[in-house]
Write a protein that binds this DNA or RNA. Sequence first.
DNA 1: CAAGAACCGTACCGTACGGTACCAGTTTGT
DNA 2: ACAAACTGGTACCGTACGGTACGGTTCTTG
Lengths: 219, 219
Amino acid sequence: MIADAGRMPEFTPRQNEVLEQALRLLVEGGDRALTTSGLARAANCSKESLYKWFGDRDGLLAAMIAHQASKVRTFERGKEKLTPENLREHLETFARDLLEVLSGDISLALNRLAVGQSGRDGSKLGKLLLEHGRRQIDRRAIALMDAGKRAGLLRFDEADAAYHTLYGLVVSDLHVRMLLGEPGLKDNARQARRAVDAFLTLHGARQESGEAVRFSSGR
Amino acid sequence: MIADAGRMPEFTPRQNEVLEQALRLLVEGGDRALTTSGLARAANCSKESLYKWFGDRDGLLAAMIAHQASKVRTFERGKEKLTPENLREHLETFARDLLEVLSGDISLALNRLAVGQSGRDGSKLGKLLLEHGRRQIDRRAIALMDAGKRAGLLRFDEADAAYHTLYGLVVSDLHVRMLLGEPGLKDNARQARRAVDAFLTLHGARQESGEAVRFSSGR
DNA sequence: CAAGAACCGTACCGTACGGTACCAGTTTGT
DNA sequence: ACAAACTGGTACCGTACGGTACGGTTCTTG
């Protein structure tokens, strides 16, 4: 028994391997391609083991989400002092990361799966996906908002509302379009820049001195 | 044969009745509940008729989308002269309508269906849904953008980009959240107001005279 | 090395779906 | 009034899935 000291809801390496295959099947063929028989064949394991490990099909799907979430760890922001350029850079990086995550194959496949199942299972999978997949990135964004406000570079009443504004400016209807099968953007960085420009126009601290806008991206 | 003079891709009253039942089944139980046998039972018709009318299951789904789209006709804007208050009112109305459409039961059910099928069928349904369901509302929004610009009340380079900005501000991640099973907003009107405020801050014509912002909503 | 657990591969069962075939009742055209 | 076309109800077929059972094999463990 491995002394994993702490994290309980993890899986054995063998099980992670199987979950990886499950994700591959899901990405390649949608949820119809993710059958217990197919997974057992692809992962060289037995159906009996699948049911022993994950209970039933829903348990397998939940495990896939947990597994995928455990791979996407968001790194903490350094404690450096925030300058306007600094803040812009962080915001743009966040926006690019957000777009990249949302347009990832596995993310799209899991979201399609959860959307398709929602309503049948009381949106159990949907809740799981939002919690596991979004909590990390949400916390990172909110922290960035608060830091910007503390540094006097951002102005807003509620960090949550400001974050949702940023999210909307960055993503617009792109996520739904991609879920429906449209290809992603050609240039995520450009979209990130435009969105952050708009966001800073809305929530950047105004320059009382009347100088040129301090937040200019210079591009 | 009714002299319907023009619209070809329509259906007979009987078929529309069946499509209505199909939508009801879809809304109530998701795509698993929409089976040919179940629909035949619910609509008091035979499976043979279903296949005669719609070809196969995909044809039925496409027909459902077309049928639903034919119900959501967007009315044209009057030709009245645009004032700032007028423009704000139109924008808010558009935003409220958009939120209402996206959070509608049938819209959500059809979007869930198309999302679930995308990738399996080369996103045929997704394309159909985007085209039929969005074209109308997109045209209405773009027309509003252009009118605002012609009246000197809005500033932007591309109407399409400005529209996407408005869309993002209004919807943010709400659509995906609802597709995943979360409940909608408590107050669409409030969200519409906030979004239009932000949009006009970004794209409203600046007041060179230095007076108070002309676009204040007064609320 | 031996006992036991874990695991793989496969075969199997019940079910439910998409799609087809067939027959009876009803409407429609003449 | 009568035939032709249309429609509804039901039975049926092949298939594929979720889930279970079982014999043989590998790995752990004392």
